[in-house]
Design a protein around this nucleic acid. Sequence first.
RNA 1: GGUCGCGUAGCUCAGCUGGAUAGAGCAACUGACUUCUAAUCAGUAGGUCGCAGGUUCGAAUCCUGCCGCGAUCACCA
Length: 581
Amino acid sequence: MDVLASLRDKIMSLVETLENQEIISSGLNKDSITVETPKDDAFGDLSSNVAMVLSKQANSNPRELAKYFVNQLSKDHSIESVEIAGPGFLNFRLKNKFWIDVVISILEAGVHFGIEKVGTGKSVNIEFVSANPTGPLHVGHTRGAVFGDVLANLLNVAGYTVTREYYVNDAGSQIDSLARSAFSRYQEALGCPTSSEQNEYPGDYLKEVGEALKEKYGKQLLYEEEDSRLDKVKDFTVKRMLALIRKDLADLGIVMDSFVSEKGLYAKGRVEDSINKLRDLGLIYTGVLERPKGGNEQEWSVREQELFKSSQFGDDTDRPIKKADGSWTYFAPDIAYHYEKLARKYDEIINIFGADHSGYIARMKAVVRALSNGEQDLTIRLCQLVKLYKDGQPVKMSKRAGSYITLRELLNEVGKDAIRFLLLMRKNDAPIDFDFSKAIEQTRENPVFYVQYANARIFSILRRARESNIDVSDASLLKADLCLLKDKNEIQAIRKLAEWPNVVAKATSRFEPHRIAFYLFEVAQLFHGLQSLGKIDQGLRFLREDDLNLSKARLAMIRSVQLVVQSGLKIFGIEPVDQML
RNA sequence: GGUCGCGUAGCUCAGCUGGAUAGAGCAACUGACUUCUAAUCAGUAGGUCGCAGGUUCGAAUCCUGCCGCGAUCACCA
């Protein structure tokens, strides 16, 4: 059970009483009533703004209102004292029993501690990565991949049925030119002269595709008609690239539940279907877009094309669904994709975009609103760029020259866990500076290491305890006399653990996994602090040979620290390590 | 030029949708290792929260206008 929530419940039931007695009018907004641990100890163990929130709306004096709560709550057995402070805060001092209950809750619930199942019975589709299958994933994709995956984890532990989805752009001209490049490599592999093309993909990874094509088809493809051989090469190459991407993702700890093919949407006629649906709604028309202000004036030409009235749904301008020559734009299959996604009836639809797609947000939201008759909202989160550094120097990347850093290289050099943690340290809409050298470092400067080290240290202490024949199973630790936990640093650490449910809830509802990263760092910090106290004062060591009961109580406490750390790492998709190497 | 985002300590960033004296890490300085792994810890110092207004009991947070940085904006995908 979540102790902060339990205090909040008590307060809320008092608010209800006040409403029933008509001391305050009912129907006030209670959402912003909080119970939290104040930053300064002087303000007590917990504090609430309830009196201020209510009095503001009721136009009464907060300190007057606060008195009522003080009178009622000071009777509570787990509360030592309640004071009114400042403009009307309620500051609570709690009996140690209250904090002991936190440890008990954690030991009982394990990694499920404090997870509110707000999503039970609801389904969510989260689309992320969706990189074109034209080559291996690179750093730019990695951030969105990790962010989306952890968001999915968060929603999953909150009880949602989550579908992780990858939209595969396996149609269109990029794929055509990919196929042509692959065909050139195939010709090379056969020792034939290549028909060099302008749009070739330069990366070496196509060489193996050429070899593989040779192995499968021999020289057969050379004699086929252009169209038919291109189709074969296309299918073959896309399949290879997708396999490559899946492998990269898997090594990053990500497994998609669903891949939706653009080509498939065309084949099933979904593009026509979705556009017809919009047409029926009167949202498609033939027209000419205005020239955008600024930039590239010379290249602008008047074009008549079919447009979608996205401006009716909050977009700046209407958007073309067909090119001037009558073929579909990139936007059209995207409409079809979301049309098809809507038909699958998710309660929530989420897209994770890269920074370069910021211009697409408005139109995609518009499409979803239009296709669902305004009933469904598309949630989009944009991940900003990752700038790579090595020894403080920026690493230059050029996609054109094929010299970008791939996810594979990152995995080899830094490792999955560090990549994940470091990319989750920032909120999604802030750019990240990612320093290779720091990521590999095993010092406090590297937060992944620091958090892992806390977990490993606890593991090591528990192992030592076991060697001294202490039963350190959770069931046994639950029986420890936890009232012996009196030291103020210990209580402080437990207070931090009590915040965990709040942190997860907030990270989930606001799509902000970075909160967990910071929180885990703080927990690790408190633990390392406790550990060091034992060096200064032998009496504060976790394991006291002269006092088995106290040892067990402290082991229970650090085990609960470990459980919280581990559940955080689990959400992050990071393996907790038992031992640092 | 339009749109979106950002601007907080020397550096990298938190700041719990309006709360109390704005917080961490790094760098700097002082101190603690025959260790329950010092791969760590304790402490000192460091601020006009970009600028100017507004909203109210109360603003880093909300509104408006500037300034600076970044992404993006047409037929590509």
